[in-house]
C-alpha cells in the first residue's frame, strides 16, 4: 500500500480533472494539505490484517429483486425540464461536443 508517499500538487490537479472540478490554482495547495491530512489518518487501515477477508460493498443481504419489464407511469416531461438550466424545445442544450477541426 503506497499511502506513505507525499501527495503532490500535480496529483491534486490531476484528481480535480478526473472529478470534473475546476479548482482555482491558488486553492490547490490548501486542498493538498487537507487531503494529505485525511489520507494520513486513513493510513491506520494498513495496520489491520485483512488476509482472506472478502470485501463488503453493502450491508444489504437480500438478493436484488427484478421487476417485470412492463412500462409504468413516467414523470411529466414539462416537470422534469423545468429544472434544466438551458432547454431547446424538448431537449437539453449543451456546448458543442465534437470540435470542428477544419
Amino acid at each position: 500500500m503506497s499511502t506513505s508517499h507525499a501527495l503532490t500538487k500535480e496529483e491534486v490537479s490531476h484528481v480535480a480533472t478526473l472529478a470534473r472540478l475546476s479548482v482555482p490554482h491558488e486553492q490547490l495547495e490548501v486542498m493538498r494539505g487537507q487531503l494529505a491530512g485525511v489520507l494520513g489518518h486513513v493510513a491506520k487501515l494498513t495496520a489491520i490484517d485483512v488476509t482472506g477477508v472478502q470485501p463488503m460493498t453493502t450491508p444489504f443481504t437480500q438478493i436484488n429483486r427484478l421487476d417485470a419489464d412492463v412500462p409504468g407511469p413516467c414523470l411529466e416531461l414539462a416537470d422534469v425540464l423545468r429544472n434544466a438550466p438551458v432547454v431547446e424545445g424538448r431537449f437539453l442544450a449543451v456546448p458543442k461536443v465534437l470540435v470542428d477541426e477544419s
Binding site: S2, V15, V23, L39, L45, V50, P55
Partner: peptide
Amino acid sequence: MLGTYVLSAGYYDAYYGRALKVRRL
C-alpha cells in the same frame, strides 16, 4: 476529491478495496 483519489487507478485496491474488507471485520 478524496473519493475520486481513493477510486483512481493505482490507489483503488490500497484504499477502497482495503476499506471494504475492514468493513466486513
